[in-house]
Design a protein around this nucleic acid. Structure first.
Length: 491
DNA sequence: GAGTTTGAAACT
DNA sequence: CAGTTTCAAACTC
């Protein structure tokens, strides 16, 4: 008995074919993989592509289409390569770990005054001396992140607020995509605009070397050689989306709208559900056939469970409710025996080593295949009625495909809802920034220092208050409204 | 495309 | 751990 559909689904949960350094998972924000589809071709000559000098080796991939000579980073030299991997790991157990860590929540969700994304930081930090960390020699710059306290660079200009860095910055200014990414990562709080951790990196440079709305440098508010704590209410003009600084590259970090929505356990649950649907359909078909044969024989007997089970089956087929909240927390499957199955799996896990989700799915498949076999046997004791069997298969397939289709439709709905959500968040943010910029322009006139408080009407978007912090200079009032607190500087 | 510069990795 | 060498990418011309 075969259940090709179920089997094929379960494959998704299975890990990819193992690589010698499978632990390596380059960060999404690493520009080397910032464009995930792009694979760099190395030009190694002396390292045989078996040292970290080789980008392919370091990235944990085979050389493919590279211009390297004496390359051993391929399937043919698996043994040699394995030795090299071992040696490398011996030297540095983290050699194949991502260089750019996601960092703390603060860091990951930070961005500078240009609105550019600054996800993560270099785990080891760079050691640049001459490039001022403004060239791709610098790993931080290359990864499109700011230098952090991990770095030991000299004359660093890759820090927040750096005038030199600004024209070189590569990013998507306050774009919807950024907002999406930030929101998906749970961006919250004041750190989204300025990270104190990153600010610590500032050394001799102007801490508040401000850039006006049009991107031109202006008089600094202060000059400091000491770390400065920057709060969200610091009167720094947010460049916002009106910043017209040249963008050297339009590389955008893409994150699926459904990221964090579909998780491994959901795939597993879906598989289980499909298996269950398949089983229910088979049972229904079997019951119907028994019924039909009984009618033919003139002995009409009611199936003791059919109606009830049909109801139950229908309940099982009902898709879970769709709501924004549900989308945010991931799609769950309302499956009656979900908890039971999980506990069963947990029971199994207790007995031995923990099993991967893929293994669990496969085991569930195995279990259900046995179940299906017994079902079919019950439906057709002679096991020779091919017509009945194929009819059952067709019904099964139909049921499973229908269920799967419903699930996909639900995913699409979730994606659309998220898209709408982030769009409204983005437009709200841009409006606030525009207003803030306008106010800042006013503030720069010769009006004596004072505090301007302008209440802003809060939009209906709950995301604004929960996921995104107020723009720089904005404060959230107790009643949910926002005000812009802007201390005017003497010019 | 060749030569130079640069900084990470490897080595001592 | 610091200094030196090797290496390949980034950069310049």
């Amino acid at each position: 008995m075969s259940l090709p559909l179920i089997s094929s689904i379960s494959v998704d949960a299975k890990p990819e074919s193992p690589k010698p350094w499978s632990q390596d998972s380059r960060p999404a924000n690493d520009t080397k993989v910032g464009t995930p589809t792009r694979k760099k071709n190395c030009n190694c000559k002396n390292s045989k592509c078996l040292k970290l000098y080789c980008e392919c080796f370091a990235a944990g991939v085979y050389c493919d289409g590279c211009n390297c000579t004496n390359c051993c980073n391929n399937v043919d030299n698996e043994t040699v390569r394995h030795v090299a991997v071992e040696a490398t790991l011996e030297r540095n157990p983290n050699a194949f770990r991502p260089k750019i860590g996601s960092g703390t929540q603060t860091l990951r969700d930070s961005r500078d005054e240009t609105g550019e994304p600054l996800f993560g930081r270099h785990n080891k930090g760079c050691h640049c001396k001459k490039s001022e960390c403004l060239k791709k020699y610098c790993e931080c710059f290359q990864a499109n992140i700011l230098c952090s306290e991990n770095c030991k660079c000299l004359d660093c200009k890759n820090f927040e607020g750096s005038i030199e860095r600004k024209p070189l910055f590569r990013g998507d200014h306050g774009s919807t995509l950024y907002m999406q990414h930030a929101a998906l990562n749970g961006a919250a709080g004041a750190h989204i605009f300025l990270s104190p951790t990153i600010s610590r990196k500032r050394k001799i440079q102007d801490v508040f070397s401000c850039t006006s709305v049009n991107g031109q440098s202006t008089k600094s508010f202060t000059q400091s050689k000491t770390p400065v704590q920057v709060s969200s209410s610091t009167p720094i003009p947010a460049a916002s989306s009106t910043n017209t600084a040249p963008v050297a590259s339009t590389k955008v970090i893409y994150r699926s709208l459904l990221a964090d929505t579909v998780r491994t356990e959901h795939v597993r649950d879906l598989c289980k559900l499909l298996v269950m649907v398949s089983g229910e359909v088979a049972k229904t078909v079997a019951d119907r056939q028994i019924e039909e044969s009984s009618v033919l024989e003139g002995h009409v007997e009611c199936s003791p469970h059919s109606d009830y089970e049909r109801d139950q089956s229908q309940k099982d087929l009902d898709m879970p409710r769709t709501s924004a909240d549900e989308c945010s927390s991931g799609i769950s499957l309302d499956k009656p025996d979900k908890e039971e199955s999980r506990s069963e799996c947990r029971e199994r896990e207790k007995g031995g080593k923990p099993m991967s989700p893929g293994t669990l799915v496969l085991m569930c498949n195995e279990k259900d295949m046995i179940f299906m076999a017994s079902q079919a046997a019950a439906a057709d004791p002679s096991s020779s009625n091919n017509r009945s069997m194929s009819e059952a298969y067709v019904e099964q397939e139909k049921g499973v495909l229908t269920k799967f289709r419903d699930y996909l439709l639900k995913l699409v709905t979730c994606g659309q809802m998220k898209e709408e959500k982030y769009r409204s968040m983005s437009s709200m943010h841009e409006r606030a920034c525009h207003m803030e910029s306008a106010l800042y322009s006013i503030a720069r006139t010769s009006v004596p220092a004072t505090t301007v408080e302008i209440p802003l009407t809060r939009t209906s978007s709950p995301a604004y208050s929960t996921n995104i912090c107020p723009p720089v200079g904005c404060q959230t009032l107790g009643n949910g409204d926002m005000k812009i607190k802007l201390e005017k500087a003497e010019m």
